[in-house]
Design a protein around this nucleic acid. Sequence first.
DNA 1: GTAGGGTTAG
Length: 689
Amino acid sequence: MLLDRRVPPNKYTFPFVLKACAARLDLRAGRAIHRHAARAGLHADLFVSTALIDLYMKCAFFRHATNVFDQMPSRDAVAWNAMLAGYALHGMHQQALAYLIRMQDTRLRPNASTLVSLLPLLAQQRALSQGKSVHAYSVRACLHDKDGVLVGTALLDMYAKCGHLRYACSVFEAMADKNDVTWSALIGGFVLCNRMLEAFRLFKDMLAQGLCFLSPTSVASALRACASLADLRIGEQLHVLLAKSGLRSDLTAGNSLLSMYAKAGLIDEATALFDEMVVKDTVSYSALISGYVQNGMADEAFLVFRRMLACSVEPDVATMVSLIPACSHLAALQHGKCSHGSVIVRGIAPETSICNALIDMYAKCGRIDLSRQIFDVMPARDIVSWNTMIAGYGIHGLGKEAAALFLDMKNRACEPDDVTFICLISACSHSGLVTEGKRWFHMMEQKYGITPRMEHYIGMVDLLARGGFLDEAYQFIQSMPLKADVRVWGALLGACRVHKNIDLGKQVAKMIQKLGPEGTGNFVLLSNIFSAAGRFDEAAEVRILQKEKGFKKSPGCSWIEINGSLHAFIGGDRSHPQSPQIYQELDSILVDINKLGYQADTSFVLQDLEDEEKEKALLYHSEKLAIAFGILTLGEDKTIFVTKNLRVCGDCHTVIKYMTLVRKRAIIVRDANRFHHFKNGQCSCGDFW
DNA sequence: GTAGGGTTAG
């Protein structure tokens, strides 16, 4: 139409066409029209210029937008708003605010549109006092009259994001007009502030007002509340509601449902939902990836990631932050390095959340040095960065380094939170620093005013009991202000096993049984304690009881990454193609280490077998198989790194020390709990295994 | 103007 010479475009035509370009982010067409307008002498026209600014801002061509703005002979509030909104759109707070301030120097006053662009910025920065000023200004300027719903919604959202739900509610109540966005903003605010039950109540109130308010956004918030409260029943009701209303195929609603099911552990439902979705986007894929990782299916997560790439759906920060922990779980360093490369290529490597995930990944893959490197160079650290790094030192038994980092954190005026202390106490526990651990616990309450949660008590019991202070740990549990849950008792029971204290172990086991059928692992521990004492009948009884109650013990599994491929073994496993060589190697190792004085600690065998058979049962534990495979495949200069899903058994711990001598290898084992660095007949953890 | 997927501890 523009090329039709008989009807030349005029100042009324250009803005509309430019608007269409902006909506499609079609910069090429937009620039062509810009030139066209210039030839027609209309490029400095108020409406044309404003439309150009809008287009360039949406396409992130800031210089072009600024040029147009600067060349305008006169500007109205809409032109100023276009600049402000453009910067706000790209999260460029400083630039946006600079335009607001410059606007004050003119005789123009901010209008409703200005505030609607401005308030989300303040919300994101949690700038409550500035937000209040804006609120006051909007009242003085009577901006509630026109566009009242928009200003009101932006205000209530700002208050909610600043954590001031009371103000948000009073704005909400004072609003004469409310629409679906208003309701959504308020419900979302309650979810954000972790007030899930009230969020539900609001959602119900909203439905009572009429179905016209129901929107994918409000359902999404309600589903988040379900996931957080682990209330699957309501979640399913919402699923039905969605199916009945016209929102069945909405992408936002579908993604929320998928995520809710995944978080509830119903990964099959989540997968089915994903497969049914006609349109899938980055969020859908990320939700499924994170679902698999959260449910311990890291390999499936990689498959979904590959499918995503094959379908040309672009991964973003959240996708990678979901995927990287899959490498951490598998301790698959090569996969992790690949993911690291991928975030560098995508230009998202400096993002704080990406760095945090990488720090965790390298720590769990045995490369605490690389964790620290990332930590040191990352552009901005948040509390998660510090906690992750401290936790990383913890699992490596580097309690002193963890403490040093805490001091560093204080010097940089970063406030520790409750998780920081969980990490610190656990770090002490893994390093045998009992006194220091107790000090952190007291400091947390007295100096930082953080009330201990169950997790802190679990850490303390673990610290004391693992350090051999079993009675003190027992006393500690008795004196807790909270009712100890199965995890607290489990920590004590685990230590009874290590320190072979059967009497206390039995007592603790009774406590656990009283608490009901919560801890699967505890049956195993109790049974192990009986076995260790040679009381096999009782051990068997516990196992039978466990079976009757329907608990499955997850089998011990160890794996090793060789050239980027994972090789997994379970105890006595002969499924690996190189099994004959592996078993031969282990038998030969046994001969060599016997010469050095090794004696099998058969108390770790769970069945009642003859001594020689016991020795064999021990010899073929999964961690030993994986290590033997490593010895056979990797060159002598390479450290062998094996990961086990459960705790390393005590006999394995001893054998691995000997292995480092007879095969002259450095061996690292990551178990469910921590890292064990074996070298020259020693283990880094000493007796705190 | 609202909103779906995400990193630490256990």
